Amino acid sequence: MAGLTAAAIAAVGFLAYQASANVPDDLGKGSASKSPEPKKSTAPAERDKGKDKDDKALPDDSGTGERVVYDLDEDRVWLVGANEKVTRTFEVTPSTVDPTPATYSVTSRANAITGSDGTPIEHVVLFATADGVPIGFSAAVDGSTPEPDPTVKTGGIRESRTDGKAMWDFAGIGTKVVVVE
């Protein structure tokens, strides 16, 4: 039992470290023949400022029932409650490793931890592993979103603190997470 607990703490700590990273909005998107100018990344709360948070429709191929839907192409999450009602939608900042489009379940959570880089992280909700990297949603307590190191595989999907709290309240252990493109 102690071994499992230590492994879980190590996985959450690793995710917390990853969650302290941020990727540019255009990373992984198609590009023109010339290299685009690097853009300064912004936190999800800053990107959503002044926007209607319900302005994006739930993807058609996102399953049924109560679930979290994560759209890799849109960098957006929907929390879908009873009767297919979207209770919240928001933009997220992806990491350098994406989960494969599929249906998952929340496997572990941590309310508040310190990442291996010393950054306090909260509302960590893990649901997958890709390329040996834990994948999940989280928010940095200080709202930081530093530029990620593209040579390091990270799996933390960054949310604003407000959106992280909403995810935490919605997605308990076993909650379905549907990843679409």
Rank of each mutant, 00 (worst) to 15 (best):
M1D: 07
A2I: 15
G3Y: 12
L4W: 12
A6R: 15
A7K: 15
A8Q: 11
I9F: 09
A11C: 09
A11L: 06
G13N: 04
G13H: 00
F14L: 14
L15P: 08
A16Q: 08
A16G: 15
N22W: 02
N22Y: 03
V23M: 00
P24T: 09
D25V: 11
D25P: 13
D26C: 07
L27G: 05
L27E: 13
G28S: 11
K29S: 13
G30K: 11
G30W: 02
G30P: 08
A32G: 13
K34L: 08
K34C: 11
P36Q: 12
E37L: 10
E37W: 05
P38D: 15
K40H: 12
A43N: 09
P44Q: 06
P44E: 09
P44N: 07
A45P: 04
E46A: 12
E46W: 06
G50T: 12
K51N: 09
K53L: 15
K53S: 11
D54M: 12
A57E: 15
P59L: 03
P59N: 06
G63M: 11
T64V: 13
E66M: 08
V68Q: 13
V69Q: 06
E74W: 14
R76L: 02
R76M: 04
R76P: 01
W78T: 04
L79Q: 09
V80E: 06
G81R: 04
G81Y: 03
A82E: 15
E84V: 12
V86C: 10
P94F: 07
S95L: 00
T96K: 01
V97A: 00
D98C: 04
D98E: 13
P99D: 01
T100E: 13
T100Y: 01
T100Q: 08
P101M: 01
A102V: 04
T103C: 03
S108P: 01
A112S: 15
A112N: 12
A112M: 10
I113W: 01
I113K: 02
G115T: 07
G115F: 09
S116D: 14
D117E: 13
G118N: 02
P120M: 09
I121R: 05
H123F: 15
V124H: 01
L126G: 02
A128G: 02
A128C: 03
A130L: 04
A130H: 11
D131T: 06
G132C: 02
V133N: 00
V133M: 00
V133T: 13
V133Y: 00
P134A: 07
P134L: 00
G136K: 01
F137T: 07
A139I: 10
A139D: 12
A140G: 05
S144P: 00
S144H: 01
T145S: 07
P146Y: 10
P146F: 05
P146D: 13
E147Y: 06
D149G: 02
D149N: 04
D149L: 00
P150M: 00
T151W: 00
K153E: 10
T154G: 14
G156L: 00
G156Y: 00
S160Q: 03
S160G: 09
R161G: 06
R161F: 08
D163C: 04
G164E: 07
K165N: 08
K165A: 15
K165T: 13
A166P: 05
M167S: 02
W168G: 01
W168A: 03
T175N: 01
K176E: 13
V177D: 04
V178A: 03
V180P: 10
V180C: 04
V180M: 03
